[in-house]
Amino acid sequence: MKKGVMRPGHIQLRVLDIEEALKHYRDLIGLIEVHRDAKGRVYLKGWTEVDKFSVVLREADQPGMDFVSYKCVSEAVVDQLRDELVAFGCNVEDIPADELDGCGRRVRFDSPTGHMFEVFATKEQTGKWGVSAVNPEAWPRELTGMKATRFDHCLLYGDDLEGSLKLFCDVLGFDIAEQVLDENGERIAQFLTASLKAHDVAFIKHPEKGKFHHASFYLNTWEEVLRAADLISMTDTSLDIGPTRHGLTHGQTIYFFDPSGNRSEVFCGGDYHYPDHPPVTWTADHLGKAIFYHTRELNERFLTALT
């Protein structure tokens, strides 16, 4: 049941070298660099995104994800969710407005899988980049690299999938769109949505808490995914796997790594989900096909290389 959470708003990633990271996220993926703050963090966005930023890079000695934040329809929703998060048992922290430049107050909370999440409702809106809000052209001509349109979702690895499922569905109003069940009916992967998209966040079962698998950016066509693959080769970027198609969500995809070892995905297509749809189920004996629809086998790196 929808409870006023709209979409992924922003993700903050740790990188070992900020300038190397910008060559990846800005020059290769094609995000727009929009701001640098007093702490040295760099803010970026995909060109179709209306809010000021959706990706924040922070230099640190350990790569990975600091947090991912979801935008809500109103401040009243944030207040309501805050109460429910406390009742659920989360450790809740109030982050003041402008801790991230241009963003209103955020409510940060931990989760059974060990990841940090936030909800917020207010962020400066600078409009789509490079096109007018009135009589807009189809796309800006100044884009670089893969020309990613938006930050779409992230995939997180952790132990207590059932706990984070309850948190996202019961408290935050997400639906489970797709899942992988093992031979005992235990859920080993869950794709959750707050919208019509096949996933706004996904989890895969893993013995360690709080691991980051990838941040994903949306492209429009399979042709653009193939072009992204060409750019990955041209720039000698570390490839994980692809281009290929997923069984889960049926999106067309390629995976690669940023210069600090955080995995990135660009993808297109994918199924849609309405709240009355039952979850799509894959079984663990078809896990290879569920993840990589064409080769039907997993590469070890996809399961074990995490930050």
């Binding site: 790569p63 990975g64 570390s238 070892g261 955080n262 930050t307």
Partner: peptide, 11 residues
Amino acid sequence: KVGCRGGGCGM
């Protein structure tokens, strides 16, 4: 073993 190739995953 080859992982991320970026000093992040430890493989």
